[in-house]
Write a protein that binds this DNA or RNA. Structure first.
Lengths: 198, 198
DNA sequence: GCCTTATTGACACTGAGTGCCACCCGGGCA
DNA sequence: TGCCCGGGTGGCACTCAGTGTCAATAAGGC
């Protein structure tokens, strides 16, 4: 890793820390980019050289997380059913950057701020695009057939279950683990013992 | 209906027509609110008295559509399985305001414009909040239990299937009907013959 | 020490959205 | 007829996100 990218990462991290602290105390909408820039000791213009939007400070690493999930999915054995493989892939990825309480606060902020919520869902749509090809392959579907929606439906549903679990997690103050809630959501959609389309 | 609400509806419709024509020819982002206001013969300020955001011109009636779906769901027989009832409720609601070609263009615009896409998903989240209570009732779930995610998962998944179908519909230029694509997506998630959790 | 290159900060600008206030128009009232 | 009153309207100014431009500057190679 070059000096250039090291300093860039350092600045990136510094902005993230500073901004997240402001967000969690004052609220997301009540924090302007000028305030973040001032607190981080950079210019407003430089902020936008590190983050495309204000939302990206909070949701920036969701893209990277999507890539991790893709790799986890491809690592699942070929014999596994697509649905099971997807669930397992999602299980294998955890967020380690924050402790549980901070995580809860962030989730609440994301769910309570429309612009953040929307961006978060956009990122999830990007996950779908990332995961669908592998599921198509496992289903033996024609990669180019626009009318074979099976893979898209499976991927979108699994991610939706994760969303539902996340919302229930915040509603319940984190008393039940995100993993358990996800499993419950997945089980409700596709009852265990149900069989795939031949 | 009073004179007041009639004139208000007329202005509302006039703005919608004018704006949609601009959107579909120039593109959504390339059309400013000043241009819409000028073309509709009102002031920029008045535009915001009829629509909260630019996106609402395109997606405004999605809230009403959600209410229709809720009523359709409540009209389904009590004995019907929640999943089936949801699918049937969604089937019973159609958009009649535009012809198929215009509908396709609008879909494409929504899917191709990030801000529109995000808002559209937000509206779908509102649908979820609208439909979940009835599904909870049908499942015999405690309305206040934050950890019973079954209803949320079912509702969110059905709407996700509609989203997937919509995207496939635009990708395939509308060659296969939205209804059929929705059925295919729903079938992929919950294979026919699968049984609900007891 | 000089030249090249990339990062930065400053400034200006667009465009969405909001608050404020004066204006106008129609209805009610004396 | 003249006055008042209330709601819709337009105009203005403002905030804030996001983008383009350009000069200054600092770092690295020669």
């Amino acid at each position: 890793m070059s000096l250039w990218s090291r300093t860039r990462n350092a600045v990136h991290g510094e902005i993230t820390r500073t901004a997240m602290e402001l967000f969690l105390t004052r609220g997301f909408d009540a924090t302007t980019i000028d305030e973040i820039a001032a607190a981080a000791g950079i210019s407003r213009r430089s902020f936008f050289r590190y983050f495309g939007t204000k939302e990206d400070v909070v949701l920036g690493d969701l893209i990277a997380r999507g890539e991790e999930i893709r790799q986890a999915l491809e690592a699942r054995p070929d014999g596994e059913e697509p649905w099971t493989a997807l669930c397992n892939a999602l299980h294998s990825v955890k967020d380690t950057a924050y402790d549980d309480d901070t995580m809860l606060a962030i989730f609440r902020m994301v769910h309570g701020t429309p612009s953040l919520r929307a961006r978060s869902i956009e990122k999830h749509l990007q996950w779908q695009a990332l995961l669908t090809p592998e599921v198509r392959r496992r289903l033996g579907a024609d990669p180019a057939d626009p009318f074979d929606v099976r893979a898209d439906a499976l991927v979108a549903t699994v991610i939706t279950c994760l969303d539902v679990a996340g919302e229930a997690w915040t509603r319940g103050d984190g008393a039940v683990s995100l993993e358990d809630l996800f499993d419950a959501a997945a089980a409700a959609v596709r009852p265990p013992g149900s069989r795939a389309v031949p």
